[in-house]
Write a protein that binds this DNA or RNA. Structure first.
Lengths: 230, 230
DNA sequence: ATTTCTGATCTTGCATACAATTACCATATG
DNA sequence: CATATGGTAATTGTATGCAAGATCAGAAAT
């Protein structure tokens, strides 16, 4: 559709640029330079930035401009923990409601991940991994929940990418995917939820650990590690 | 604070008006009349509306103006189901991490609900119920997750209110609260999650049933039509 | 009577102008 | 040397004007 407003397109473009890592956390998003870059006036740029701010994607500070959000280690851990809860909810529903279509979509995404992992192509794996997780969101057959999951996944993408660069993590991630898929297909809601939860949270913990070298008083990831035992 | 931008204040005002029911689902949010009403130009109004749209609170359709969202019965059910998943996640974490402070806050909110229920004051119960649930969100000790829960709770408030009017539902709700509190205090994550899930979802199911019985669109179209002329 | 077309009118989207606030930097001062 | 201070530049917030799309009423056609 070509009748879409510029502001909406700009919102998408800026979001893409942030996800692609062109603007990194902490970078300033100057209205004037963005306007020049995209060849429009400041008005639609402002509208795009404010919307991204409302979604939590960037941080717009009144009268002081917008920057790409810089969550504290604690905050980051909380975001991953929330992602873990939302994903496990998706997995639980998927296990309950799985249809052949959704099954096929997950299978295809999983195969793609497998190829990327075998080639050690972490950039490709990053993309395919996203597709795999999105296939699970859709398999929940709750489009609202899936939308929430998409949104949070996008917000965390900048942090996930860094962390997937470790080579052996790729293979481990792939194996976890296989286990998740197995549980969903078996219709085992509890197992699917647990496996997804751990899969997501281990990423968060690893990254938090990485960042947590300097910050004091943050919530220790180790503290929450014992959720598997019930 | 008086250094806050108008757009931000307007966003709050419009949101409040929607929650208060002044604008009902389906009502048009005309930029010009809102600008006149608040004594500002269209620019900050637009910015407020776009932000509310990004949060999912209202529905801004390109070139066709903003309206208060009118979720379909299916969508509404999905929203309640998602709320149930998020709340049960909060309950699970609360059971794991409960502190005396959070315990006391939940207790106080529960007592208030009890009084309101005994008096059959559904309007008061509506407010106290909100406090009780928010106390649980905070008890999760994950502020990001709690924020997500707050936001969704607000979006659903218009629909929850209607449904709490039934008198015996008040007492049943109160008893469910007691069971939830008990499970959290016992540190039983699984039980807390299940009870919260059911507590929230039963509301969603009841309301969805209610809407499904009516004509599609919920509120009568005749009433929304009146708003357009001025 | 219902549908389709057409032009007038209203509304939104964007650009520009200006006002208000913050950031910057050189200089003065203890 | 560190810290205040003043003024200027840079940036954000709001108002206004105009163009393009959407809405609506009434006439024409089936």
């Amino acid at each position: 559709m070509y009748t879409m407003s510029q502001a909406f397109r700009l919102k998408q473009s800026i979001e893409d640029a942030v996800i692609a890592g062109e603007f990194q956390p902490g970078d300033r998003l100057d209205e004037a330079s963005l306007a020049e870059r995209f060849g429009v006036s400041r008005t639609p740029i402002r509208e795009a930035l404010l919307q991204l701010g409302a979604e939590g994607f960037i941080d717009v500070r009144p009268r002081r401009g917008a920057i790409v959000s810089v969550p504290s280690p604690t905050r980051l851990f909380e975001m991953f923990e929330t992602m873990a809860e939302i994903e496990s909810a998706c997995g639980r529903l998927a296990a309950r409601r799985l249809t052949p279509d959704n099954d096929a979509a997950m299978e295809a995404a999983h195969r793609a991940c497998e190829t990327a992992a075998r080639n050690g192509d972490s950039e490709q794996y990053y993309a395919d991994n996203r597709n795999f997780h999105e296939a699970i969101y859709r398999a929940s057959r709750n489009s609202f929940l899936a939308d929430q999951a998409f949104a949070l996944h996008k917000r965390l993408s900048a942090y996930r990418r860094i962390q997937l660069r470790a080579r052996n993590r790729l293979l481990q991630s792939l194996q976890e995917h296989a286990g998740i898929l197995e549980a969903i297909r078996a219709g085992d809601e509890q197992l699917a939820a647990t496996r997804l939860h751990d899969h997501v949270l281990v990423q968060g913990e690893r990254f938090s650990d990485m960042v947590l070298g300097l910050s004091p008083g943050g919530q220790s990831p180790a503290e929450s590690r014992r959720q598997t035992a019930k």
